[in-house]
Design a protein around this nucleic acid. Sequence first.
DNA 1: AGTCCTGCGCAATGAGCTTGCGAAGCATCC
DNA 2: GGATGCTTCGCAAGCTCATTGCGCAGGACT
Lengths: 155, 155
Amino acid sequence: MPIILDPIDRHILRVLQRDGRISNVDLAKEVGLSPSPCLRRVRLLEEAGIIDRYVAVLDPAKVGAGLTVFARVWFKTQDAEVTLRFAEAVRRFPEVMECYLTTGECDAVLRIVTADLHSYWRFQADHLTRIPSVLSVKTDVPMETLKRSFELPLR
Amino acid sequence: MPIILDPIDRHILRVLQRDGRISNVDLAKEVGLSPSPCLRRVRLLEEAGIIDRYVAVLDPAKVGAGLTVFARVWFKTQDAEVTLRFAEAVRRFPEVMECYLTTGECDAVLRIVTADLHSYWRFQADHLTRIPSVLSVKTDVPMETLKRSFELPLR
DNA sequence: AGTCCTGCGCAATGAGCTTGCGAAGCATCC
DNA sequence: GGATGCTTCGCAAGCTCATTGCGCAGGACT
């Protein structure tokens, strides 16, 4: 059932994670195949769902999303109802890029993207803390980041 | 200096964040332009660095990266030396997808991707806690996630 | 050895990218 | 008020690239 990836497949995936818009002929050249079998492999990887989709990655600073904030959230209670309502609520805010419902010290970790610190505090006060499930929020503002979001390790 | 994005540009960016490999003619159709000015706008957005790059998004579960873990890290001391050494050290591990050096309760937040929980604990024991800068690590294992990593909010 | 099967390369067709050019809308300045 | 310059559009031609069908080579199994 799990598709077996040979070295060429992994090579293709590595290249496409770096450049999702490389032409098929260049991709074929890079992995040492002729264009047609290379394209066939890519199609198979797509149909198997191993390649989920292709996206453009924008520069956050240049589209008014220069600040990434981690918010740790504590719920009033920890039942499924409250948790689901929270997950549903954050889905409506485009600022919330990721929501992790955790089993650790806090109940949820949010990665939130806004233009700057001021708009973040406004978002937290106006929207985040007003979600009924939320008891309290603690904020981590990153200073420097390593971003490898788009390249999964292929070993 | 900051490039002004008109509604058509934002429309283009939204579409490309969903589908980075859409053909230019389809993109033009969707935003209500003819192919050539549409392609010209895309090229400008690329040259301005607003579109940073295009990538293929893989399904983590299907490439042996099924588990995402948040690790909060505390340093032994908080001077620049220790911090930089830590940032340098995590860079060598492909499992570390993101590293946020924070100013909040802990000193760093890592997003770590491994195949499963067992490989995570092995990674933490063998590599993470052996970085000289590291005093202690606390782990948040997410149960359910909202993933919007690739679509920045355009308002 | 013969047969099947998988995956390769080649070639032809067609779709899409790319560029140059002329026209239309709009603001500025005599 | 009309002319000029600037911007951005659409059209068309040329050319690259994607896509498909087909034949061939190498390995496995009988």
